[in-house]
Simulated assay, not measured.
Amino acid sequence: MNDEHRGWYPVAAAADLGTGPRPAALFGEDLVLWRDEAGAPHAFVDRCPHRGTRLSLGAVRVVDGRAQLECPYHGWRFDGAGRCLHIPAQPAFTPAAGQAAQGHPLREAHGLLWVSFDGATSALPDPGPVPGRAVVCGPYDVATSAPRVVENFLDTSHFAFVHEGWLGDRGHTEVPAYEVLLRADGAPGVPHYRAWQPQASAQSAGGAWIDYRYQVLSPCSAVLVKQAGGDTPAPQEAYALWVAPLEPERSRVWFTLYTSDPVTPDATLRAFQHTIFTQDQPVLESQRPRRLPLSGGEAHCAADRLSAAYRRYLQAQGITYGVC
C-alpha cells in the first residue's frame, strides 16, 4: 500500500446519500455507497464479484427487515458486511465467502462520508476547536492534483489578485512575516497571520483586518480559522478543506464551514464560498505541471514559507500521488 493511501479521505457529502446506491471514487478506484436499514453507510468496490457489473446501477432492497444491495445484472444481494445473501438463479444455495462484495471502512464526520483503504487504523482529520454550526460546500471537481488544491488553500499572496474585492485588494499586497510551526506529526501550521480583506465572509458589510490561523491536517486536508478585529468583531469562522484524490491529476473538493453565526442562511454561506473557490479553480487548472513539484522546478520567495513547509511535509510523509 502506498503511503498516501493510508488514512481517511472524503468521498461524498453525508446528506447526498439517500436510500439508493451512489457512485463515488478514490485513488482511481470506483466505489458504491449505500445505507442499511438503520441508516448506517457502507462503501464497497463498485464491482459485483459475479460478472464485474457496477453495483451502483443496482438498488437497495429491504428483505425481511434487512436492507441489501442488489446487483442490477443477476440480482445477487449483499449485506452491509459485503456477504452475499441471495443468488436468485440458485435460491436454495448458500453463497460462499468467495462470493462476497469487497468493502472498505466508512465513517461519517464533518458532514461528509470518509473511506479508509488501510483498514481504519488511522485517525480522521480533526479541525480542532471550531464553532458549532457546520455547513458543507461542494463538491467541486477540479482538473489538478490534490496537493495543488491544498497548497492554494494555504497561499495568502494571491488574495489581492485572484480574490480582488473579496479577500484582498491591490492596496494591500504585501505578505507580512509569519511563523510556521510543526505539529508532532510534522504537519505545518501558522498560529497567527493578519490580512486586510474587503469582504472576509458572507456576513461582512465592509473591509476589516482579519486574524487567520492555518493548520495542515493531513496530506489532503487543512483548516483556517478567521476572526475579524474591531470593536464589534464578526462571528468567528473556520473553513476546513477536504480533498479526495480521484486520480493523480484530478480531485474532488469539499469545504466544511464552521461558524458561530446562527442567522445567515446556509445558501448564503455556500454562495460566498462558491464565489471564492470558483475564482481559484481556473487558476488551479491552469497550473503546469498539474502534479505539485517537490524536487525543484518552481521559484519561491519568503511569502511562500507555508507552501514550502507543506511540500517538505509531503516528502516526509512519503507522498508520491499527485506530486512530481
Rank of each mutant, 00 (worst) to 15 (best):
D155R: 09
T156Y: 00
A160C: 14
A160Y: 11
H163G: 05
W166G: 08
L167Q: 06
G168I: 05
D169E: 15
D169V: 02
H172F: 12
T173R: 03
T173A: 07
E174W: 08
V175H: 07
V175C: 09
V180H: 11
L182Y: 13
R183T: 07
R183S: 15
R183V: 10
A184Y: 06
A184D: 15
D185I: 03
A187N: 00
A187R: 00
P188L: 13
P188R: 00
P188M: 06
V190N: 11
V190W: 06
P191A: 08
H192M: 14
H192I: 11
H192C: 14
H192S: 15
R194S: 14
R194W: 12
R194E: 15
A195Y: 07
Q197V: 02
A200S: 15
S201P: 04
A202Q: 13
Q203N: 14
G206F: 11
G206I: 01
G207Q: 09
A208Q: 09
I210F: 14
D211N: 13
R213L: 10
R213Y: 14
Q215P: 06
V216H: 00
L217T: 02
C220Y: 09
C220P: 07
C220R: 03
S221L: 01
L224Q: 07
V225A: 05
A228G: 14
D231V: 05
T232I: 01
A234S: 09
A234V: 02
Q236W: 09
A238K: 10
Y239H: 08
Y239Q: 10
A240V: 10
L241V: 06
L241S: 04
L241I: 01
W242R: 02
V243I: 14
A244T: 05
L246H: 09
E247I: 00
R250T: 12
V253S: 02
F255C: 04
T256W: 03
L257H: 06
L257C: 06
L257Y: 01
Y258A: 09
T259Y: 07
T259L: 11
T259P: 13
S260E: 10
P262W: 12
P262S: 10
V263Q: 10
V263I: 06
T264L: 15
T268V: 14
T268Q: 11
A271I: 03
A271T: 05
A271S: 13
F272D: 03
Q273G: 12
H274K: 02
H274F: 08
I276E: 11
I276V: 09
I276F: 02
F277N: 00
